[in-house]
Design a protein around this nucleic acid. Sequence first.
DNA 1: GAGAAAAAGTAGCTGTAGCTACATATTTTA
DNA 2: TAAAATATGTAGCTACAGCTACTTTTTCTC
Lengths: 230, 230
Amino acid sequence: MEQYYDVLRKCVLFRGVEENKFRNLLYCLDGQVKKYHEEEYIFFAGDKVSHVGVVLSGRIEILKENLAGNKHIIAVLDPSNMFAEGIVCTASRLSPVTSQAMEDAEVLLIPYERIIKSCGAACDFHISLIQNMMVILGEKNVSLNWKLELLTLKGMREKLASYLLNASKENGSNTFLIPLNRTELADFLNVSRTSMCRELTRMKDDGLIDLYGRSFKILDSERLAECLET
Amino acid sequence: MEQYYDVLRKCVLFRGVEENKFRNLLYCLDGQVKKYHEEEYIFFAGDKVSHVGVVLSGRIEILKENLAGNKHIIAVLDPSNMFAEGIVCTASRLSPVTSQAMEDAEVLLIPYERIIKSCGAACDFHISLIQNMMVILGEKNVSLNWKLELLTLKGMREKLASYLLNASKENGSNTFLIPLNRTELADFLNVSRTSMCRELTRMKDDGLIDLYGRSFKILDSERLAECLET
DNA sequence: GAGAAAAAGTAGCTGTAGCTACATATTTTA
DNA sequence: TAAAATATGTAGCTACAGCTACTTTTTCTC
């Protein structure tokens, strides 16, 4: 388990927990590490979920698939990120979403009960964990709101502009790499890949952006931001 | 304050709190009742929020407005419902959404700190409150996911079918009233009112539904459900 | 109950995103 | 390194939702 300490320490759930209590805490939480192959599913929409997950390595995507086979990527999770924490807090615990490994991945699964219920032992960190859970839930809420905002934008250019400006802000630079390929980005923005490619080319022709593969450069952030003022 | 007890008791936040501790609890939480007129704003997107709200009377809408004046209704809240509980749990506490009274309304505002921090007095119900907060956050998460699903549907008919089937399920009947007028429903589904009216008429002509004002009747739930299998 | 105001429905035109069907890259793997 | 598989870009056509400009209906208010 020690090999994962660095990743876990970055997880918001364990924020504020003193380092010397770490081993004890992980033991008390009774987490188990599971490995998933690329494309393997972790749980499906409709499944009853009783564990929260922490990504230890690889990348996980949270998605919805409809009956026609269209998939919509809701979120992409890197190591140290949590998932399913919203589901386990509900009464039914039925997941509205599917989670799948985008590449070979390792996940720490923790029974939800262990987090919220203080055990008999002298585990004073449970209070921290509960506080942290609330922060995570609140922040997930905000990120879902941002996703909603992206989807409510009407035009293709607006969606791309919003996504790229946000990515630029997160990276703190006008030049940045995005974590998604074209097909994945289209699924994330809930548009067709071909239409998206067409618009990206137009935006390049208009001198708004430059792009090569997953690398993007914002050439005129002002005009790009104006796209959103529709 | 006693006049609001019935509404408050139905609020998930106070679930499991014994009735005789109710007065004590409300005093300890230091909530204040505020009245809002129809159309009045409670807080704006970008505001720093430190109170959670409980709707006591009237209806509140959670929405986003873009610079062009288009508004998108994310949720409509009836009495006993909470709002802003996701925002106050985040680090920044900056609201991504605006909240507005749809009609004359009363709201109980509770400082978030009072909920999560045990006070010195013998308020053993704080533990219940924290557990309840998690449930609320988890459920808000699920409802945002359902909203996301609605928005990711491509066609007008799919969105309407999804909305109506859900409303029918919630009401436990094929005949039901929806809480939104046409303009509001269009804002909720993020479509134009005129296109929506057109499609509603088509669906009526196709024998899928019948409608008059806010009253809907699902005539052929099977075929209506098939609309979603695109 | 009459007039005003708001809400709901309708029609025609237009623009944009989706789709199919490719062409061209790029990466994988045998 | 060649061949296969995957990813990406392009073009033409089509369908559908948005918009404007109405009409009709319902609700409010005096």
